[in-house]
Design a protein around this nucleic acid. Structure first.
Lengths: 233, 233
DNA sequence: GAGTGGTCTAGACCACAAT
DNA sequence: TTGTGGTCTAGACCACTCC
C-alpha cells in the first residue's frame, strides 16, 4: 500500500492505484471523473489529470471522452516480458490445449520457501499442445492471498491462466536459466535424459503480498522467450 | 526519427529525443532550460515541462535544480531486462575478467542476416571469469552504424562493453532459449557435449538502424537472467 | 446537446544547489 | 543570491462520443 507519499498528484495516483491493485476496484469499474476528484481532493483539474494520465500510461485505467475512466481489463501481454499465458499461446497457434494435473495437495509452507507463507496449494502439471508435452509446471499458490483457489481442480483451465484472469495487477520476478532434464522430467516431457530445458522460475505478488511461485520447464529448442525494449512513445 | 507528431509537448519531446538517440547530443551535454525552450517553441512553461518530465522518466535526461537538464549517462541496467554487461558483472563479483578473442574478420552481410546489411565485423570470443569460461559469444557489428569498430582489436574490452559505452540509447530484442552444447561449444566452455546452455540472442538498433547481433551461450546452471516488473513509482 | 477527457496558458510559490 | 526545476492553480478551448 502506498497512497501517502510526496506530492498531491502522486498521492491521488497512489490511492487509486492501491484500490485497483488490491482488487477493491474490479476491472470495468468506473473511476470518478476528474471533476469529482477535484472536489474530493480539493485541487485543480490539472493536478487530478496528471495523476489520471499516469495511471492510464501504466495501463491501470482506460479513459474515454464523454464516457469516463474505467479500471482496465488486465492485459496479459506486458510490454517487456510476458507472464506467459501458455494456454492462450497454444490456442493462438491453432493447437489443442490441455492441462494434465499430475499432483495436487495442500500443505504448509516450508521454511526455505521464503517468499510464501502459511497454507499453500502445491500443484504439478503438464501443459500439452496437441498431443505433445509443452511444459512441465510446478506451482505453489498462497491460499491466504487466493482462498478461492482451494476449491478448484484446474481441469479445464491451467492454474496460470486462472490466476491471470482472477488475480490481476500482479508484480513478478522471473529467473531464467537452462538445465539438463532429470530422468523424471525427461520422461514427462518425452525427451532424453539430460536434454536442455529452459527453466523459468517466477514469483508473483499482489500489492506486496506473495501470491504464487512457479517453475516451468520448456524443451529448450521448442520455446523462445522474447523480450523487447526500447523507446515506447 | 519522429519529432513531428501529435501535440506540441509530444513534438518537443520527440525532437529532443531524436537528438539524443541519434547521438547528436552526447551524454553529459546540457539541454536548454525550460525558459529557453519556451522561447524556441513559443509556448508556456507547463508545456515544456511536460515534455522534459517525460524525457526524465524515460531516463534520457537528468534534471537538477539550479544546474539545468543534461543528457543522461546511459544506465547499463535497464529496469526490466538488462543488456548484460558481462564484463562489469564479473568485475563486480570480484573476479578477474578477460575476453579471449577467438576469431575476427570483416565480411559482407549474408542474405539470411536480414537484420544487418553491408559491411560487417564478425567476432567470436570467450568471456572468462578468473580462469573459468563464462560465456561464448558470436557477434556481428554493422560498420555502417559503427565505423569506429573497424579499428579495434577488443583485447582490453569486450565488444559488448565497448558498444554499451560508445553507442548509447539503443533498443534491443532478446530471444532466450536453451540448447545442448555442440562438441565445439562444449570444448570451449569446458563442459560435456550436450550440456544445457542458456542461449541469449539479441539484436540491437539505434534510432531505427541495426547496430549489432549477438548470440551468447552460458553454462545453464551458472547463469540466471533476472527480469522484474511491476509498479514503478 | 452535454459531459468527459486532452491539451494548453499565464502566473505563482517553493526547494534546492551552484555561485 | 539567484537560476533552475517541481508543483500547483484557475481558467480556457477543443474533440469526441454517448445520450
Amino acid at each position: 500500500m502506498s497512497g501517502a507519499e510526496g506530492t498531491l498528484s502522486q498521492r491521488i495516483r497512489g490511492e487509486i492505484e492501491d484500490l485497483i491493485r488490491s482488487g477493491a476496484w474490479a476491472p470495468g469499474r468506473k473511476v470518478p471523473s476528474e471533476l469529482e476528484l477535484m472536489g474530493q481532493f480539493g485541487c485543480s483539474r490539472m493536478t487530478v489529470n496528471k495523476a489520471m494520465s499516469a495511471l492510464a500510461d501504466e495501463g491501470l485505467i482506460v479513459r474515454r471522452r464523454r464516457a469516463g475512466s474505467f479500471v482496465a481489463r488486465p492485459r496479459v501481454h506486458s510490454a517487456v516480458l510476458d507472464i506467459p499465458d501458455i494456454q492462450a499461446e497454444i490456442v493462438a497457434r491453432g493447437e489443442a490445449y490441455r492441462f494434465d494435473l499430475l499432483d495436487r495437495r495442500r500443505r504448509e509452507a516450508r521454511a526455505e520457501e521464503a517468499a510464501l507463507a502459511g497454507d499453500l496449494l502445491a500443484l504439478r502439471g503438464l501443459h500439452v499442445a496437441g498431443d505433445r508435452p509443452f511444459a512441465l509446471e510446478d506451482r505453489l499458490i498462497s491460499l491466504a492471498a487466493v482462498p478461492e483457489a482451494a476449491g478448484l481442480d484446474f481441469a479445464d483451465e491451467s492454474p496460470g491462466a486462472w490466476l491471470l484472469h482472477h488475480v490481476p495487477w500482479t508484480e513478478a520476478e522471473n529467473r531464467i536459466s537452462a538445465v539438463g532434464a532429470s530422468g523424471e522430467e525427461a520422461r514427462l516431457l518425452a525427451l532424453d535424459e539430460g536434454a536442455a530445458l529452459l527453466a523459468v522460475e517466477r514469483r508473483t505478488w499482489r500489492a506486496g503480498e506473495p501470491v504464487t511461485w512457479v517453475r516451468q520447464l520448456f524443451p529448450g529448442e521448442a520455446y523462445d522467450l522474447v523480450a523487447r525494449f526500447g523507446p515506447a512513445r
